[in-house]
Simulated scan of single mutants.
Amino acid sequence: MTAAGPGPTRPSGAPPRAVTAVLFDRDGTLIADVPYNGDPERVRLLPGARQAVDLLRGAGVATGVVSNQSGIGRGLLTHADVRRVNARADALLGGVDVWLYCPHPPEAGCDCRKPRPGLVLRAARRLGSAPGACVVIGDIAADLGAARAAGARGVLVPNAATRPEEVARAPVTAPDLLCAVRGLLGGDGS
C-alpha cells in the first residue's frame, strides 16, 4: 500500500492498530460494476477478490460488504434482485460474514448511504467489531468518506471509474485488492 498525500501517521516503532474486520464495497471493488445489476449470471469477481477474502478468513478477520444500491429507490431493482446478486457474489467469494446495502437514492438524505457512516457502523456492530478496528476497502471517495465518518480506516483501490482527484486525496491506496489485504495483514498474507 502507498500513502497518497497527507495521511495518518504513527510514531516510529509503534505497532499498527489491529484490524478485526474488513468491509468491502461491492461494485467495482469485489465484482465487476454492472450498473443496476439484478442478474446473478452477470456477477464476475474482480481479480484477487476471492484470494483476498480467503486471506482474511484464514487470518481470523471478519468480512463484510457495504454497498449503495440506489437502483432500488429509483425503481430499477428490487430488494430480491440485490439479494440474488449478493448471494451469487457470496458463493463465488466463499462466504462473507455480513452483507449490507443502502436502497435509497442520493436525494433521500438517509444515514446509510455512503459517504455517511450508517452502513459501516451497522456492519461493525453485526461483526462485533469496534469501528476503529474496521477497514473499508473501496474504489471511490464515498467509500473512504463512510470509513472516516464512522471512525474506521479506508483504503482506496482505484479503477477506471475512480477520479484522479479521489486518488490524490486518499490517505491510503493500493494497486489492487490483494495488495490492499496483504498490506493490512502486515505483509504477503501467506
Rank of each mutant, 00 (worst) to 15 (best):
L119M: 14
G145L: 07
D111M: 05
A142D: 09
L144G: 03
V167T: 13
G151V: 06
A160F: 05
L144A: 06
V172L: 13
R122F: 07
N159I: 08
L156P: 06
P175G: 05
A124Y: 01
A150D: 14
L119D: 05
P131A: 13
A133Q: 15
V157H: 00
L184K: 01
A174L: 12
C112G: 07
G183Q: 12
R116A: 14
A170R: 03
A180G: 13
C134I: 13
K114W: 08
L178Y: 08
V157S: 00
K114H: 09
A180E: 07
D143K: 01
A150C: 14
P175R: 10
L144F: 04
L127W: 11
V181I: 13
C112R: 09
R113K: 04
G128W: 12
A168G: 05
A161M: 07
T162L: 01
P164Q: 02
V135P: 00
R125S: 15
R169K: 13
G118Q: 12
A123G: 00
C179N: 00
D111R: 11
L121E: 10
P164D: 06
S129H: 07
E165T: 08
V155M: 06
A133F: 05
A168E: 14
G151R: 09
E165W: 03
R126A: 15
A180Y: 03
R153M: 15
P131W: 12
R153E: 15
I137H: 08
V157I: 02
D111H: 11
A142G: 03
A146L: 03
R122I: 09
D176H: 14
A174N: 10
C179Y: 00
A149W: 03
